[in-house]
């Protein structure tokens, strides 16, 4: 138990913070209940996938500035394919879009490996490319989503035999998020490839000399990042019912949550759980500030201050830790 605590200390701390914030929300607004929690999770969903995409890239020692525009591109592809199509057609659209995301990410990785330009510059250039492609697919927000896809993330789950009191607090969106992330991340982390991703992030040269195929691993890491971004794009289409070619504020939020979640920029450390909890914390802070009737513009100041001070604190603790072993 202690070992688990020490190893996952940061994540546990974030979880405690999240629960404290939930209690605070309840204290401020006694009516805060299951429905508000459900809408919180729904709002978090695209952010969570963006964060997952960023996490994989950062663990592999890179950074992906194109996450937001990849989400926009996959979202408009999904929305325009499902526009006017039958409900069952969406069954083919979903895997196709995920495949597209995987391909886009792999293209990112391929460009990084082939051109030898730093990750940050390549993904910066790709940000423009994907944004342009999204504008070519759909000029203005539009398209449609299949009804069953939209309903997938609405309301609480219903399990026969379990009292409604319990299930009311488990939103469908949370289930979708958990299944999608676990289905990709758990096998990946336990596989040879996952180990290689951590290895190249931690020390590329050492990994290369230990026989890790660096180029292939990097391409695949970015491909998985793209896959998560495609899930984010689908989540956008699912929650809004349309696709929008202009990316939302997902890049900044994803980098912030990755850092808050205990994944060090530079790579090789951290997991997926921390950043996901962190993004929930960040969104909940926003909700609480709204409940407090704080001016939404002041909310941005609060968010930035929290982000900066938490990151400073984390860096300070890491510095002290390395000085006094």
């Amino acid at each position: 138990m202690m070992r688990l605590l020490r190893r996952e200390g940061w994540v546990v701390g974030l979880l405690v913070l999240f629960i404290v914030l939930l209690i605070v929300a309840k204290l401020i607004q006694p009516n805060y209940g299951a429905n508000d929690f459900i809408s919180l999770v729904r709002a978090v969903l695209p952010f969570a996938f963006a964060v997952a995409a960023q996490t994989v890239a950062v663990i592999a020692g890179g950074i992906d500035l194109s996450v937001g525009s990849m989400m926009a591109l996959t979202s408009v592809i999904a929305a325009s394919l499902m526009n006017g199509a039958s409900e069952s057609y969406a069954l083919f659209v979903v895997p196709f879009v995920l495949l597209v995301g995987f391909g886009l990410g792999a293209f990112n990785g391929l460009m990084i490996v082939v051109t030898r330009v730093p990750d940050i510059v390549v993904t910066l250039a790709m940000l423009f490319v994907f944004q342009g492609a999204a504008l070519l697919v759909l000029q203005a927000p539009g398209g449609a989503s299949a009804e069953w896809l939209k309903n997938l993330i609405v309301g609480p789950i219903s399990i026969p035999g379990v009292p409604v009191v319990v299930t009311a607090f488990i939103p469908n969106a949370l289930i979708v998020l958990a299944i999608a992330l676990c289905a990709v991340w758990l096998p990946l982390k336990r596989s040879h490839l996952g180990l290689s991703i951590y290895a190249i992030g931690s020390h590329e040269l050492a990994a290369f000399r230990s026989g890790v195929p660096v180029a292939r691993t990097k391409i695949l890491a970015y491909a998985f990042s793209g896959l998560f971004a495609a899930m984010g794009g689908l989540a956008l289409t699912m929650s809004t019912g349309i696709g929008a070619p202009i990316p939302g504020p997902y890049l900044l939020a994803s980098v912030a949550a990755v850092v808050l979640g205990g994944v060090t920029l530079g790579g090789g450390k951290g997991g997926l759980m921390g950043p996901i909890v962190a993004v929930f914390v960040l969104r909940l802070v926003r909700t609480i500030l709204t409940l407090l009737a704080v001016d939404p513009n002041v909310t941005a100041i609060f968010e930035g201050t929290i982000m900066v001070s938490v990151v400073m604190l984390g860096a300070y603790l890491a510095m002290r830790g390395s000085r006094m072993p």
Partner: peptide, 12 residues
């Protein structure tokens, strides 16, 4: 859209 794609590719 095509303009942005070209911009990104040329920078790269």
């Amino acid at each position: 859209g095509a303009r942005r794609i070209l911009f990104g590719l040329i920078v790269l």
